[in-house]
Design a protein around this nucleic acid. Structure first.
Lengths: 303, 303
DNA sequence: CATTGTGGTGCAGGAATTGCAGCGGTGACG
DNA sequence: CGTCACCGCTGCAATTCCTGCACCACAATG
């Protein structure tokens, strides 16, 4: 789309941090790029970048402009997708930002289900913790976000929610595996694998620990649930996960999961969200609708 | 702004109804315009206009595109205004769509008050009945709308409301001028000047008449409140208006106004609104805030 | 003090856009 | 039924606009 070229260039300069650097990445001369920037600043009546000795940095006006640019591109993308839609071509691209728990089972299943009906739709799935998922929505880096226990919900519109009680994850041979529901005090006797602080599960556990004065002993802290789950079991270590990030227990898995009593650790909420006020492209809107249905259906699951 | 040029051209073609016609109004050749249109349609992958023997007409894809164009231009305008704002230049342009009652007193007073503090801000004030005011918001022809008893409020965000009881307007010598409050049944004895059907006041009166079985005898129906008010008084004619459209009664005006009992005709609501989800330009947002304050302050007025 | 990076500028070549003339087609009108 | 006017569209030449090279001034770096 030609008329957004200059605006794309601005964003490239922002990314590269210098005009010459951006020019290289765009296969252009710095001259041409510089000229375009100067022309745009002229029309705008204000500098878009502050000139520094080692490059450029966005001015306040530039911050405004870059946000506008992202919005324009996203809206154009929406129009293109709607036009393609009314031509009958069910193609498109959906950008999803989600928490780690969604990656192993939920998202693959949902995406493959969607693609079974719309094979021309492609996907980007990016792992974003609860802070960055919301920023990704606002920066138009993602169309929809699926995030556990989001931080602040400004500029974000909630499409659906699903309660997710925290589960304890352990080896099948673990003593606690005999219980149907695990109390927080049960866990104090065993070493635990703690998710790091950016995760919603950790957030809920920290609250619970402050409230109940039960102290868990973190053997390992990691930002990878997969690592925590796979850490060898002889240590009797327990880790945590929410149901949507757990496989169906078919009796053969080497690990088992037990819900933690919600009187000790309240159930968190999984949020499906988009940027407030934005009209999503057709494919993204349809996929979001499917996800919302899936979350509603999964609600009585919990084990 | 160069990068919106092509999109502006599309809108010009839409307005003119033909490529050659638009080319003339743009001081261009039909060749150039046609080429641009074809290029854009190529990039978009779908025709924007249906080709008719006597010109062109928007295709469904074009309808989508033209809405996108208007949104982009309005958003760019917002960015420009915000940039000008942070440069300290308090300039800008505010487009207001409002009901007739606001034109004689309220809008002039508010605009001149605003311009006293921001002399670089200019205004467009357009009369739009309650149907068309909302459409003007959606089409980005107006930033804010001030409308009495709006029709449907979809795609419109309400910023403030003010109740406006309907008043009877009559000559100072009129028999009913002796009363402090007028009942609907009082009016049956006199000829009335009716506002035409597109007005909110008429809407309220029609409802009241259906409900109370009191029949008013419309001597004159007009779409001009000014005409109705100025129609010579010997006929003892009564007409209607809401307080915000009435001058302050200083005892010297040849006409007087009396509120109609709200048990007969319920008070209507004056709505200050903008398009849902839109971020207004700085000047428009500030002016809207002032209007909201003015409406709140005017509430206990009513005579 | 030289080197290396930055943004900015004059000038010439080149690419993209424009305008002119003309084609084929359709509806209005005498 | 022929004429006319208007429509969208296209080949070719002119022009305009944009690009790229060489170069400048400047600041940080070593």
């Amino acid at each position: 789309m030609r008329h957004l070229e200059t605006l794309e260039f601005i964003e490239a300069i922002h990314r590269a941090g210098s005009i010459r650097g951006a020019a290289d990445s765009l296969s252009l001369t710095s001259t041409a790029l510089n000229r375009r920037l100067l022309a745009l600043e002229g029309e705008l009546g204000a500098p878009i970048f502050e000139r520094l000795p080692r490059g450029v940095r966005l001015s306040p006006a530039g911050e405004l402009l870059i946000q506008h640019i992202r919005g324009q591109r996203a809206d154009l993308e929406r129009v293109r997708s709607q036009i393609a839609d009314l031509k009958g071509e069910r193609r498109g691209h959906v950008k999803v930002a989600c928490s780690q728990a969604l990656l192993p089972y939920f998202m693959p299943r949902e995406i493959s289900a969607y693609r079974a009906e719309h094979p021309l739709v492609t996907f980007s799935v990016n792992l974003r913790d609860r802070y960055r998922a919301e920023r990704a929505l606002v920066a138009h880096e993602a169309d929809i976000a699926l995030v556990f226990e989001p931080v602040r919900l400004a500029d974000v519109q909630v499409l659906a929610t699903a309660p997710q009680p925290v589960h304890a994850v352990m080896a099948r041979s673990h003593p606690l595996a005999a219980k149907r529901v695990v109390r927080l005090s049960d866990l104090a006797a065993f070493p635990v694998g703690m998710p790091s602080e950016e995760f919603g599960v950790r957030y809920l556990l920290d609250i619970a620990m402050r409230r109940s004065s039960v102290k868990l002993t973190p053997l390992i802290e990691s930002d990878s649930f997969e690592f925590l789950r796979c850490y060898p079991g002889p240590e009797l270590m327990v880790t945590f996960q929410i149901p949507i990030g757990l496989p169906a227990d078919d009796g053969r898995e080497p690990i088992v999961t037990r819900p933690i009593d919600t009187r000790d650790v309240p159930a968190g909420l999984l949020y499906l969200a988009q940027m407030r006020g934005r009209t999503l492209p057709v494919a993204a809107a349809n996929f979001a609708r499917q996800l919302a249905r899936a979350l509603d259906a999964a609600e009585p699951k919990g084990e």
